[in-house]
């Protein structure tokens, strides 16, 4: 049985979980192609026009998988952390419903609900439903999920501690070699959601461009969870969205560490949670007098425009350092 996994949104944060789960159950995995102009255009065609760019991209990736898989995996991620009050953006929660409403003649959707807050009884029911679809036993599915969780947590600890920032970036960006950093590089925190930062098409190769300029790039994935929890105390109230919490907390962590030259917030045009996230980071950066820039991406992202903004920002930081 072939399971199609769209290469966007949860792919960049949870792919090890999905991969190990489906492989354990003996399914084949087809991942959609890397984001391209065609995928983006398909997405724009199917999604409602108010939606933000990542959601449109998701529609495009699902369309890309149309004739390649027996099932298309659209997770209904409700909560995957230890925190009880945290969930995901409403658009994530309603993804399966959005896809069903807008696209016809698709292979059946595999919308597994993942909610760690639910009581065991409901979780078992969900496993029974999924096992029936995948033609295995609920017990096997549950064991596979336990194993997959372990796999993911190992992957995350590797990113946030064992690997150096450069090695982690290689893994995240899926490339072999990075350009050599200059002898005394500027260190920039590039914060944003994984599905924006590591998708080379939609971010217009933002991280690579920064690396080419000889900057040391730090991303939210590289902060150990313990430090994130510590940084959370600086907020009046936790945000409700897992990815947003990661972004805000990691920015606070980097700002508190004191060795930062600047901070770049990468956001998608019309992103709801980011309206709050952006302001929180801005206020925090203002307090600590660290230069802050917000780069917003949309379906018309011109590479030159992004490059100009990045270059201007990096130049400004270099002047600033020289003057000191």
């Amino acid at each position: 049985m072939k399971i199609g996994i769209p290469r966007t949104l949860t792919y960049y944060a949870y792919y090890p979980l999905w991969e190990s789960f489906f492989k354990e159950l003996g399914c084949d995995i087809v991942v959609s192609d890397k984001t391209s102009k065609v995928i983006l255009d398909d997405g724009v065609q199917y999604a409602v026009n108010d939606a933000c760019i990542p959601i449109k991209l998701f529609h495009g990736h699902v369309h890309n998988l149309k004739n390649k898989a027996d099932y298309i995996f659209v997770p209904r991620l409700m909560n995957y952390t230890e925190e009880k009050t945290v969930t995901y953006c409403p658009k994530f929660l309603g993804l399966a419903d959005m896809i069903r409403a807008s696209m016809d003649a698709l292979p059946p959707l595999l919308d597994i609900k993942i909610d760690m807050r639910e009581k065991r009884k409901y979780r078992r029911e969900e496993f029974e439903r999924v096992a029936a679809l995948l033609k295995t036993s609920p017990r096997k599915a549950m064991l596979a999920f336990q194993k997959a969780r372990l796999h993911l947590s190992r992957y995350n600890t590797m990113l946030s501690g064992k690997l150096s920032p450069d090695e982690a970036l290689k893994l995240l960006l899926d490339i072999h070699d990075l350009p050599a950093a200059s002898s005394d590089p500027l260190s920039l925190a590039v914060v944003g959601y994984p599905y924006l930062l590591y998708d080379e098409f939609i971010s217009a190769g933002l991280i690579k461009k920064l690396l080419d300029m000889g900057v040391r790039v730090l991303t939210p994935e590289m902060v150990p969870p313990r430090e994130l929890n510590k940084a959370a105390k600086a907020l009046p109230k936790d945000l409700f969205w897992t990815f947003s919490n990661q972004v805000v907390r990691s920015s606070i962590y980097y700002l508190q560490s004191g060795s930062l030259d600047g901070i770049i917030h990468v956001t998608a045009f019309g992103c709801g949670p980011d309206s709050m996230v952006d302001k929180l980071i801005e206020l925090e950066a203002k307090q600590r007098a660290v230069p802050f820039i917000c780069v917003s991406l949309d379906e018309h992202t011109g590479e030159a425009g992004v490059l100009t903004r990045l270059e201007a920002f990096v130049d400004m930081l270099e002047f600033r350092r020289d003057r000191k």
Binding site: D50, P90, G94, D97, M98, A101, G272
Partner: peptide, 18 residues
């Protein structure tokens, strides 16, 4: 009626089309 960038209403807007 959808206020601009309202997240839940964007989902329901797509569902209402169906």
């Amino acid at each position: 009626m959808v206020p601009i960038t309202c997240m839940p209403e964007i989902v329901s807007r797509q569902v209402l089309q169906r």
